[in-house]
Design a protein around this nucleic acid. Structure first.
Lengths: 261, 261
DNA sequence: AGGCCGCCTTGACTTGAGTCAATGATCATC
DNA sequence: GATGATCATTGACTCAAGTCAAGGCGGCCT
C-alpha cells in the first residue's frame, strides 16, 4: 500500500515564524517518507509513546505525513471525519463557528498534540494551520482498529482526552468569569508553561497567531486584545520581544491575574 | 468487606423538586444496600453498560451508595481525589472558583452521568447537589484497577470522556461568543434534549437550579438571567410552568438563537 | 524605491451586561 | 397565618468591552 501524500498551501506564508517551532529533519520535508516513528522527536509527548516496537510498526503502516502552509485548512467543521492527526511541527488552531460567522477558537495545538479527539462521524470543529506545519495523518477507521487492538494506545488516548477535558474546563472559567486583562495574562502564562513542558523557551513566550486569533480564543475582539497588551506593557508586566515574542516581566502579577485574586 | 455508608445533608431541602428526576426504588433509600447493579435504572446510560455479569459483580464489590441533600457538598476543588461517582438520581453541579470567589459552573450532571473524570490526585473542581440526589461511590484506586483490567470499561470511559470534551467545547462557544439571550436559549434547548434522551419530559423543561447557578453556568449575573427570562417570556418564546418548569413555546426561534444566525 | 496588503494600534463613541438597591414571591417554620 | 429566609424580579445607573473609523508599521512584490 502506497502512502498517501498531501500538501496544502495557503496564500500568505508566515515563514518568518515557522522556524521557531520544532520541525522534522530537512530530509523528510515535503515528502511522504516511510515514517521513522522510532526516531520521531515528538513521539514521547504524543499518543505513540508507550507502544512497543511491533505496535509502532503497525502504526507506521497506516500513517501518512503531510505539510500545511500557514493559514492553510486541514478540515472543516461538519466535514466527514475521515482522518485523525498528530501534529509534528508548527501550530494548528481548532475552532467552531456560529451561523453568522462569529468564531470561537477552542484550542491551539503544538507538536505532539493529537487532532481529532471527541468526534464521531463528522468533525465537530474546523482546523487550520497557524504557521507552516507538519502532521501525521491516520485514516480514522484504521486507527480506531488499532486503538481497539492495542490497550496501550487506548489507555494513552484516554489520558490525552482527560487532559484535554481538564484544559477545556479551565478555559470555561476564563471565558465565563475572567476580565480581559486576566484572560490575556492567563494565556501568556499557560503558553509559557506549555513551552517549558516541551523543553522550549518559556520566556519570551512565542505567540505566532494574530490578534484576531487571540481574541477568538479568549472571547474578546482584536481591539480589546491589542489594548490589553498595551496596558500590560505600560505597567511593565510584559514587554515586546521580536517576531511575535513577548517577555514576561512580572510572573507574580501574571500569576495573580490568572488565579483571579 | 462492609459497604461504606454516607449521608450528607444540607440546610434547606428542595424536596419539592426532588421527585421530578428519576430515583431508585423506595426500598434502597437512605440505606447502603447491596447494590443491585443488574437492576439499576441508569445502568445502560452509565459507564457500567456493556459489562458482563462477572465484571459487574466485581464493580458491585467496590461500590457504595450514598445520598446527598439539596445544596449538600460532595467534594471540594483541590481535595484529595479518593473517589469517583456515578449519579443515580437527582442532579449535581460541578464548578471551579477563582481566588476572589467568582464561580464558573462547568456542568450539571444527571442520573447516569459520571463524576470524577479528568482528574488525577486532586479534584479539579468542586461538586454539590442541586436537589436531593443519590450516587454510587467508587474508591478511585480500586476503580482504576478495574478500568485497567476491563477493556470494556476503559473503552466506555473513553467514550464518555470524549462526549464530555465535545460538550465542553460547545460550551466554550457559548461562553465566549454568545449573547445573554442566545446563552439562555441554548441552555433551554440543550436541557430539553438531554431530558428527551433520558426518556423524560422535554417540554416543559425542568430547571431545578437557582438563577444564580444558571448565571454561573452561562457566564452571566443573576439579574441578567432573570431579565433574559422575562424578555423571552414577553416575546412568547417561552412561558412559565410550575415548580421551576419552563415551557418552550417556539422551538424554531430557540434553535435559531442557539445556532447564532 | 515605492506601493500594496495584512495586521496592529489608537481614539471616540456606543452598548450589553454588570452593579447597586428595592421590592415581590414563595416556601418553611413556629 | 404571621414571620423570616431564600430566591426572583425590576429599576436606575455604571462601566468594561464592543463598534466604527483612522492611521501606522512592516514585510513583500514589482
Amino acid at each position: 500500500m502506497g502512502l498517501d501524500r498531501a500538501m496544502y498551501s495557503a496564500g500568505k506564508s508566515r515563514a518568518r515564524h515557522s522556524d521557531a517551532i520544532g520541525r522534522l529533519g530537512a530530509s523528510d520535508r515535503g515528502e511522504a517518507s516511510r515514517s521513522p516513528c522510532q526516531a520521531c522527536p515528538v513521539r514521547l509527548r504524543s499518543i505513540c509513546s508507550g507502544l512497543d516496537f511491533d505496535e509502532l510498526e503497525e502504526l507506521e503502516k497506516i500513517v501518512a505525513r503531510m505539510t500545511v502552509g500557514a493559514g492553510g485548512p486541514i478540515f472543516d467543521e461538519g466535514e466527514a471525519a475521515r482522518c485523525r492527526y498528530n501534529v509534528t511541527s508548527g501550530s494548528i488552531k481548532i475552532y467552531k463557528l456560529l451561523g453568522d460567522g462569529r468564531r470561537q477558537i477552542i484550542g491551539f495545538l503544538f507538536p505532539g498534540d493529537f487532532l481529532g479527539l471527541a468526534m464521531a462521524d463528522e468533525y465537530a470543529y474546523g482546523a487550520e494551520a497557524v504557521v507552516d506545519s507538519e502532521l501525521c495523518r491516520f485514516p480514522r477507521r484504521e486507527l480506531d482498529d488499532l486503538i481497539n487492538r492495542f490497550p496501550t494506545l487506548e489507555n494513552r488516548l484516554l489520558n490525552v482526552t482527560s487532559n484535554e477535558l481538564a484544559v477545556a474546563q479551565e478555559q470555561m472559567v476564563l471565558l465565563g468569569r475572567k476580565t480581559a486583562k486576566e484572560k490575556v495574562a492567563t494565556m501568556l502564562l499557560l503558553f509559557s508553561r506549555r513551552a517549558a513542558e516541551r523543553g522550549m523557551a518559556d520566556n519570551p513566550v512565542y505567540l505566532p497567531m494574530t490578534r484576531t486569533d487571540i481574541g477568538d480564543y479568549l472571547g474578546l475582539t482584536t481591539e480589546t486584545v491589542s489594548r490589553t497588551f498595551t496596558q500590560l506593557r505600560a505597567q511593565r508586566i510584559i514587554s515586546a520581544g521580536s517576531g511575535g515574542r513577548i517577555w514576561l516581566e512580572d510572573l507574580e502579577i501574571l500569576g495573580t491575574l490568572m488565579e483571579g485574586f
